[in-house]
Design a protein around this nucleic acid. Structure first.
Lengths: 182, 182
DNA sequence: CGCACCATGTAATGCGTTACATGATTTT
DNA sequence: AAAATCATGTAACGCATTACATGGTGCG
């Protein structure tokens, strides 16, 4: 269960609500780790039961109270243990597009090509986000945080992975489209 | 639920047991779609209840009877419907390595580098598999099957994705290792 | 003699999504 | 006037893994 550690990681920067954690993930880790709002709330609840985090309620008028979470010592220790445990295997992936393609020998050629071109567009758009928005967010956070430069190196490495993955996908789609056209 | 369609796809080539379906997936789709033996068995059972497949038992002495599944007309129709529905979104991925890296600013540099080098080795090994074993399996299947050439084009496209992903990962790891070293 | 392969399944548990339920404030 | 944002949560369901349970055959 890695969502747990993602939340610990962010709360280790500063205390936040479940709502803010969702927003933070959406602009930072979402391209390699994402979660729905509901899962974040339920996970935080379980984490509090286990003593990894603690919450204080900030009362508000006219809208629901904010439940602000912070990491406990035990949570900090759990995060460190997890970070120090190296990833020794290749991770398995699921690629829906490849699965469909694999079984598509008898499908309409034109429909297939349309779909591949559509995917190409999506990767192109994503690429633009990485090179614009994502880059800006990293620079901004790095300026705000103490020790921001060291973080920025790693954050940019994850961004760079996104860029390279999108570029690779576009290249693969171009190749594949050509092969199918013959 | 795509495992269902994966199983229909293979059974559409020829009737098989759950055990054989697992083996088939392991040498063909496993790098973009995998499943555990137990999940395959339970999924086949549910599919039979819904009338997508039918099973016959082949009795054996000295070992468990083989339950051989075949697609029904309804199953064939479901497979076609699924294949014709285009993938319109980018798929979200989870990358454990990137997640850890993201939060690793305060971690030991050397441990980090060791881990990244280890991952590089794994990708290199995987690359060799794609270019040896996987290639051979595709050629063999394409020779055996009627209409094998059209299938081979698509199967090789999925293999090519694997190759390009591994190459991209190696390049990214090399870059990232260099950046962390400074 | 031990290990891998053949061959089936169930039960418990965990991870993740969708749907449900509520409602004021701010922006377009 | 409508839509997005802020803000919380629960319930039901589906997908996936791990562990449990069994046991003969064939190979080195």
């Amino acid at each position: 269960m890695s969502l747990k550690y993602t939340l610990l990681g962010f709360l280790n920067y500063q205390p936040m609500t479940g709502y803010e954690l969702k927003q933070t993930m959406d602009i930072s880790t979402s391209n390699f780790w994402h979660a729905k709002q509901s899962q974040i709330y339920t996970t935080l609840k379980k984490m509090e039961e286990k003593g990894l985090v603690m919450s204080d309620i900030e009362e508000q008028n006219g809208r629901p109270n904010r439940r602000v979470y912070k990491v406990t010592e035990s949570g900090r220790a759990a995060l460190q243990t997890w970070l120090k445990k190296p990833v020794m295997e290749l991770q398995a992936h699921k690629e829906l597009l490849l699965l469909k393609l694999f079984f598509s020998a008898d499908q309409d050629k034109q429909a297939l090509l349309t779909q591949l071109n559509w995917q190409r567009d999506l990767h192109q758009q994503r690429l633009a986000v990485y090179q614009g928005e994502t880059k800006a967010v990293i620079e901004q956070f790095a300026r705000m945080m103490p020790g921001g430069e060291q973080n920025a190196v790693l954050w940019n490495a994850t961004r760079r992975f996104g860029v390279m993955f999108a570029q690779m996908s576009i290249k693969w789609l171009d190749e594949t489209i050509k092969k199918i056209e013959d």
